[in-house]
């Protein structure tokens, strides 16, 4: 991403911003609410006015955005349905089934989303995002509104399924960034600037109880507080 300007409702969110994301790795962008994390992600997805997507991306928003009239399986295959490519659709179906089995929804393929719990819906949304098979995965606080234990479960699952993909995830939760990010960057200020790369040691998903992780979490929280 080179020399980007992000403007939202007349406010300059970011000026002359250049960022590199490590290929095949997960980059977590950490910042407090309102700093412009979501705008940055929408900029990358080409969803802001006058922006182009950074390439073929799969986008996972804060809400699961499952279509209530489609079964779980059809929701996961939504991209193929919308592109109306029958051959690709058929080719993707076994993968969709496999992904749903991996996220633990193998027995709910034909159920409508309103019969699922919040955690299950988010897992279905994760499967849909991965089924798109795009080069870049953009995730906007995908587990933000789940309860703490479900969130940890889904982080483990996501870390496993996102292996080898280029992922940009924004979050306001330092622990989430530390568990999932190969690289973490802190966003702060108005318009925001991006801090240096923080690369915590160890493979993802990192254990939430690891003392080194908790020390790093304390440091990140301190930094977020100081910066505002």
């Amino acid at each position: 991403m080179r020399s980007a300007h992000i403007v939202l409702d007349g406010h300059v969110v970011a000026e002359n911003l250049s960022l590199d994301f490590a290929g095949g790795r997960t980059t977590c962008l950490l910042g407090r609410s309102g700093v412009g994390k979501t705008s940055l992600l929408r900029h990358l997805a080409g969803l802001l006015p006058c922006t182009e997507a950074a390439g073929p991306v799969a986008y996972m928003a804060q809400r699961d955005l499952l279509l209530p009239w489609l079964s779980v399986l059809d929701n996961v295959l939504l991209g193929y349905r919308l592109r109306r490519d029958g051959a690709q659709h058929r080719a993707a179906e076994p993968r969709a089934r496999a992904l749903l089995a991996e996220v633990g929804l193998g027995d709910r393929l034909h159920d409508l989303p309103h019969t699922l719990s919040g955690g299950m819906r988010q897992r279905a949304a994760l499967a849909r995002t991965l089924c798109e098979d795009r080069g870049i995965v953009l995730m906007d606080e995908p587990f933000g509104h789940l309860d703490a234990v479900t969130r940890l479960d889904l982080q483990d699952l996501a870390a496993h399924l996102l292996q080898g993909r280029t992922v940009v995830m924004v979050t306001h939760d330092p622990l989430e960034a530390l568990r999932l990010g190969h690289e973490i960057r802190v966003l702060s200020g108005m318009p925001f600037s991006v801090g240096p790369v923080i690369a915590p040691p160890g493979a993802v998903p990192r254990e939430p109880g690891d003392p080194a992780l908790l020390a790093l979490q304390a440091r990140l929280i301190g930094e977020l507080r100081r910066l505002s």
Binding site: G46, L47, V57, A58, Y59, L65, L78, G79, L82
Partner: peptide, 8 residues
Amino acid sequence: ELARTMDA
């Protein structure tokens, strides 16, 4: 927006 990222 989701549909847009899916090139619909």
